[in-house]
């Protein structure tokens, strides 16, 4: 059981007004997400949990009731965001081996490193891309490779910053399957600005707007949240049920 507890968090990043979260507890076993329009502060929240930003307040991560020390964060937490591939070409296999660094910081890679790289690539369906360089991949391929880079060190906490961005429908569907599969043993916390992705993929939705939490809903409570979502996204939304699952979809009618 992995638990993230956030208390009195305040992040000020750049010129944005900053993110304030008074109290939030996340647990493993289901997909958690923070959803909100552009500039709501989703990335800042994720980065603060990953320890990549300085913040005031408290973020504690416990794995089976043992607290993770701040200087051990890099071993247990991964934050997956867009990458700017370097013009020195790095192949997918190399990138995955490099990302094993927290587990084997010595000069040589261990055979376990190679084994983990193989297993991770099979899990994400990127085995055929291993010799390609990061700059040659399509958006869908790159997104899966980035998640592989994030999980190859076997973290307890996986933070995904807008993983659905730039993906077409086919790749979004694949991504959703992959993320659902990972959420079993890891705590998955992702951000998205798309309410339909949030409701299809996630079991718990935290609504963020202008740096403040507007609500915290389980997927089964979505019907109470519809009005709030419409207000925050300034868009008419419909709650529909498909194959037993409730989803929020935008209504792009001309009259609104």
């Amino acid at each position: 059981m992995i638990v993230v507890e956030i208390r009195d968090l305040n992040v000020v990043y750049g010129r944005n007004p900053g993110v304030t979260v008074e109290r939030l507890t996340l647990t493993s076993g289901r997909v958690n997400c923070v959803v909100g329009p552009n500039g709501a502060g989703k990335s800042s929240l994720l980065k603060a949990v990953a320890g990549l930003l300085t913040y005031r307040g408290e973020v504690s991560i416990r794995i089976n009731d043992v607290e993770v020390e701040k200087n051990e964060l890099h071993r247990y937490v991964s934050y997956v965001s867009d990458i700017q591939p370097s013009s020195i070409k790095v192949s997918v296999r190399e990138a995955l081996l490099y990302a094993r660094y927290p587990c084997s910081p010595g000069f040589f890679y261990s055979d376990r490193d190679f084994k983990y790289v193989e297993e991770t690539s099979r899990l994400l369906g990127i085995s055929h891309l291993m010799e390609k360089s990061l700059s040659e991949l399509s958006s869908g391929e790159l997104q899966r490779v980035l998640i592989a880079i994030g999980i190859v060190k076997n973290p307890a906490l996986l933070l995904l910053d807008e993983p659905d961005i730039h993906l077409d429908l086919y790749n979004k569907t694949r991504l959703i399957k992959v993320i659902r599969g990972l959420a079993g043993e890891k705590l998955v916390f992702l951000s998205t600005h798309d309410p339909s992705v949030a409701s299809t993929l996630c079991d718990r939705l935290i609504l963020l707007n202008n740096g403040r939490m507007q609500g915290d809903f389980g997927i089964e409570e979505l019907n109470q949240a519809l009005g709030l979502f419409e207000e925050v996204f300034k868009t008419r939304l419909a709650l529909v049920e498909v194959e037993g699952r409730r989803m929020l979809i935008p209504v792009y009618s001309v009259s609104t």
Binding site: H74, V77, S81, I83, Y101
Partner: peptide
């Protein structure tokens, strides 16, 4: 080579 964000979260 992986960029600053990735290098930082991998402990360097």
């Amino acid at each position: 080579l992986l960029g600053d964000i990735y290098s930082k979260q991998l402990g360097v």
